[in-house]
Design a binder for these strands. Structure first.
Lengths: 213, 213, 213, 213
DNA sequence: ACTTAACCGAGACGGTACGTCCTGTCTTTTC
DNA sequence: GAAAAGACAGGACGTACCGTCTCGGTTAAGT
């Protein structure tokens, strides 16, 4: 896996059971004690593993945690192949964003995700790995849904889809991470509506006239 | 100051020189060594202060850092009383966001701000202090500018200004913190335009006519 | 104390209870687990002390052990002010050497003393401290007894007392440390007699004629 | 070889080149880094050998070192078949002891021999092996020389030769190991003279008349 | 002016975790 | 089937900081 290859280590001889025990322990521990109090020693102890086995394969606790997420996302196999596409973009986006809110709010994932997010904020290398291995696939799904909407005339033809995604998901993530306000389904809905319509007034006959086509 | 009042401490007898030395040292050190390697001992040593003097007045290194920002924002006196208001909302927002991009990109502030942001992400109490003391005043300025635009008919009448602010600034902060892409003036411009116009197509004769720019 | 002064440490603030707990624990542990398995961590744990408190004041576990002996020899206060002097040198030496044999054989002291002896063998600095603080006082007592005998005409006038002491105690220590043979009271007696008379034949009328004078 | 036989190992298939490489590396390393920092891993690495090959054949690093000495003493072939015997015991002993002093003082052998000596002090099993395989042959040579002197009337008839040997060599070894004083040829001479004549005064006409030299 | 109480610098202390090194065992692959 | 290679669980190393705790020495109040 991307982040774990170290110079001297011979991956062929690697013990898979230890690897999984480490990642599982790391994920559980970060839930229980928080990221700051997550220690390599603690992970090793819970995993029944020598510390060296962790240091041999990962450069930092952030990297361990990242791989823990990676394992989860691979094990939680299947991964929805696509975002819902009922033809009603606004409704679909609301569905997806409400799900995101639910996940970010879930106490099982809140701490671990904050941990990953803040670690990424401080470690550009980890950030790159995150973008490539975890974020890119998700972004691709989102892009597909937006492209579909664009073809259906529900989005502006000249719209930059990357900016569009930032506009839709950025406010959510920001509010979650910085706690700048309550993170609710209602907020998600509002972000969807507002970003779709824009901040400016729309002409009376309404820009969303075509919605639901 | 909000975060520093402790039960037993008598603020009247407090030594102002030590206070400033601590905050300055903290801010400098976080630039030099990063937040993770920022230590109370290091701050105390550089400030020429006993550790106890720090522990007496602040509950955590995050709180010290927060006060360091507070001091900076108070010393960087004046604080623009308002955001620019030329009557052209789009241009004004671009100006402001470009400035934000410049600040976030400035190597002197990048690390310290990341430190503060991630500390906030893990410490709700600190987050509350941040919202009240640093974020709220800024938000008020933004709200005023938007309200002015709203009155001028440049923003939808029923627009929720808080959501609007999230829509404008969220993508920027998110991209900065998560490094999901390059943070440039051009990006700032695009975010402004897109959020104002919304993602949907605008009817040709529609609204403020500039759509598609 | 000679060995414990470190560059940065401020001895005035030193905690005496911790110091004694460390030395006591070290001495007990070396009896129980042997010198090789004696660890700084173990000493710290048993003494209820942080490891740093040991590293702050002693450069090595050998130095700790040395101070443990020093403490013992100072606490076991009084220290015989002189070796027995009945006028009969041979008898007195036998008494003393038998006592030495008993001490070296005592399971409470055997391991700790071996530990000290072998540590001295590898650490010239510690050896110097040993010579000055533990060995010298003992040697002075021995020298006094021998000088008394010399004045009484029981020892050769031109005898080098240092060599004499080596001749008497060297074989004993060597046999103990190297286990080159059983270490018994009988052996002690033989060493005394033989060293006093020398290896060569004595003239028939016997050199020990004057003994008991 | 005595110490290396293990239960499961089949000595017949053993690779002689590895064995010699291990012993040579061990001897060299102990010179370079000292006994305390001598490690099995280090020996294996320098010998270009797997750790298991060492663990298969030796029970401890002390045993390896012991065999290294054994190899040396066998390779340093020939082994003087006897100690010098010019008829003048005193002169011969001085010759031998001066040689011993030179060897113990030789920086190439000092550390390794200290290592062996101190290891023996802590490991009775190793001590036994040492006595049988390295010490006994040497002692036999010494005994022969002394017996010859005894027959010539230069030593007391009733002298216990083992005690005699302890008396002659003990002081030397002790001074070397414990660094209780400078180890010189002059000291060796003095030990010989004093032990031969004994500590007591000799009657003027007495014995071999040389007393007082 | 004289206590007196808190602040302050300094830094020792009991702890925890770090990241490294080595132990002795095990497994895989090569000869 | 011994040997080179090296991963592994375990544990000690010596260091860095944590947060608490004295210890003098200022430094302002309150008498």
């Amino acid at each position: 896996m991307t982040t774990e290859r170290r110079a001297t280590a011979n991956a062929a001889r690697r013990k898979e059971t230890s690897r999984r025990a480490i990642l599982t322990s790391a994920f559980e521990l970060v839930q229980e004690v928080g990221y700051v109090k997550l220690t390599i020693e603690g992970i090793a102890a819970r995993a029944g593993v020598g510390k060296q086995t962790i240091y041999r394969w990962w450069p930092s606790k952030g990297a361990v945690l990242f791989d823990a997420f990676l394992m989860l996302s691979e094990d939680g196999a299947g991964e929805p192949a696509a975002l819902p596409d009922t033809g009603d973009l606004e409704a679909d986006l609301k569905t997806v964003l409400r799900a995101t809110v639910a996940e970010l709010t879930d106490p099982r994932y809140d701490e671990p995700m904050r941990a990953l997010a803040t670690e990424i904020a401080h470690d550009p290398e980890l950030a790159a790995a995150y973008l490539e291995r975890l974020d890119a696939p998700l972004k691709e799904l989102k892009r597909q849904r937006l492209r579909s909407a664009q073809r259906a005339g529900q989005l502006a033809d000249d719209l930059d889809l990357d900016v569009a995604m930032d506009l839709i998901w950025g406010p959510l993530l920001n509010r979650w991470l910085q706690r700048t306000g309550p993170l609710t389904a209602e907020y998600a809905d509002r972000v969807v509506t507002t970003s779709l319509n824009g901040l400016r007034p729309r002409s009376p006959e309404g820009g969303s006239a075509r919605a639901g086509a």
